[in-house]
Design a protein around this nucleic acid. Structure first.
Lengths: 280, 280
DNA sequence: GTCCATCTGTGCGAATTCTCACAACAAGAT
DNA sequence: ATCTTGTTGTGAGAATTCGCACAGATGGAC
């Protein structure tokens, strides 16, 4: 049995579509289709139903995928072990962080890290979705809440507060009872800063909902309304002015997460230390 | 990371040499060498020391091999699951058995099984070394003692006794005190039939030691001396005559072994039933 | 309705990989 | 000493595999 065929099939089972599996493996979707077909041929077993716009696993396929899934886990464990075997500082480290943290706090200071350790190459991915450290989509991650997945080591490295910001002109022309607001879309209704904003807005209008914090900031700058932004973003921007409201401010903790297998790797430790400095 | 590279490296780690790994994988040894080299390159990690006549794992290599070993286990579990998914009777079944049992009790009756189930193809391997059911080197195995490995289901399907045999001429020309004997080589000194033979031979001479039971029978037929042979072998051979001695006869149990994952597979059940009949 | 994004399928040329045959070498048996 | 067996290494041609470009088809957004 060809292990690469199995790898492609397991990726398909995990991702759901040929194309997604292909992206996750870094190959062409045609390759995934061919390898799955080859696996079926070698097993003389139908693993997927080929429907017009989707591949659907057969019962046999589901069972095989379930039994084979630990192979992928182990493969990632091997990858981590390889990374952990590197004793000298260097190589590529992938950092996953919320976009705003990545852009404003990490990226501007990266130059310092690279000067100190010329061998290191950093891959910084600012994504909303949390990258999987288990699958080694990232070596280090910044999260806004403590992760619960097994095998991960989390450490609280910072805390920041939100405040309401708008353009200086906006405050001159608009009385508080006529304020309009900019918020996340409804999928984020449960995060603390959104609840805080909604409670303050009460019946006043939400004129823009966007997934992207940077978009909210841009909207606030142009005078669309008020947005709940981290202070580290709002305070440094001359086009934004804070609007103080009473009550307890809302804030989020920042957790630095690393896989247990990589904890002691010199390169990872160096980068982790650097990130802590950025957040301090 | 290429899973096939890993597969080849793990095979090398398990088998010890390029050639053995290549045999176990069914590929050329050059392929194993290349894939291991490719794996090292992709990891930027030295996994083996290339010595003149052997590959030796480095410390890193040993660690990686240990961490990755479960992948091979899982791959074999998948292979068993595939076999178990076949609902209709048919396909290739591999049986491992001691050579004498295979040749005398199984092989002659195979025709009956194949007539009854034309879809089945049997691969019968008569080997001294016990094939690994976990690695799916065989689907069914006959063993002379109860296996202890986890995951295996064993069932006692037979029992046979040994007796001493020589050629009829030999008994006419040789008095008991001058008997010579034929035995297994010293690696088998601990098996019951060998201990039984040695105790009876006492100080009389062992003129031939051979690994192969068929060779012992042949030697006894030509009048070289007495050999301890299973009764199912000796009694049916006109060129052999039994020499009865007192005391409790020595015998061995026959166990039919199957992996838990394959227990309920129709084809395996059919073949297992057939083997039971052979031994009855 | 139209456009756009996404998914799977097909054909072909290019790049890669594998096997084969042969070589060199060592160890053990004859 | 010679022969056999088993190991790794090298080079070349053949077979395989991959990616690209394009097509068809569907569902959602506008």
């Amino acid at each position: 049995m060809d292990w690469t065929d199995l790898q492609h099939f397991l990726a398909l089972a995990r991702e759901g579509t040929l194309s997604a599996a292909a992206r996750s493996l870094g190959v062409d979707h045609v390759t995934v289709a061919r390898r799955v077909a080859a696996l079926e041929a070698s097993m003389s077993l139908k693993l997927v139903d080929r429907r017009p716009r989707s591949y659907e696993l057969t019962e046999d396929g589901k069972r095989i995928a379930k039994i084979g899934a630990p192979m992928a886990e182990t493969a990632f464990a091997v990858a981590r072990a390889v990374q952990a075997s590197k004793s000298e500082i260097g190589g590529e480290i992938t950092i996953s962080a919320p976009p705003s943290l990545a852009n404003l706090l990490i990226a501007p200071k990266l130059i310092r890290l690279l000067q100190q350790h010329p061998g290191i190459r950093i891959k910084l991915i600012g994504e909303k979705r949390t990258a999987s450290l288990n699958r080694r989509e990232a070596d280090l991650a910044l999260r806004l809440s403590r992760p619960t997945e097994p095998g991960l080591i989390a450490r609280k490295v910072g805390y920041f507060e939100f405040a309401l910001y708008g353009s200086p002109d906006y405050f001159k022309t608009t009385p508080p009872h006529a304020f309009a607001f900019v918020a996340y879309d409804s999928s984020m209704d449960e995060v603390p800063q959104q609840r805080w904003l909604m409670r303050f807005a009460a019946s006043r209008e939400i004129v823009l909902r966007t997934n992207d914090l940077e978009n909210q900031a841009a909207a606030a700058r142009t005078g669309l309304g008020l947005a709940a932004l981290p202070k580290f973003l709002g305070e440094t921007d001359p086009l934004l002015e804070r609007f103080d409201i009473g009550g307890r401010p809302v804030g989020r903790e920042v957790w630095l997460v690393v896989h247990r297998d990589l904890r002691r790797t010199p390169t990872v430790r160096a980068v982790a230390g650097f990130i802590e400095d950025c957040l301090a």
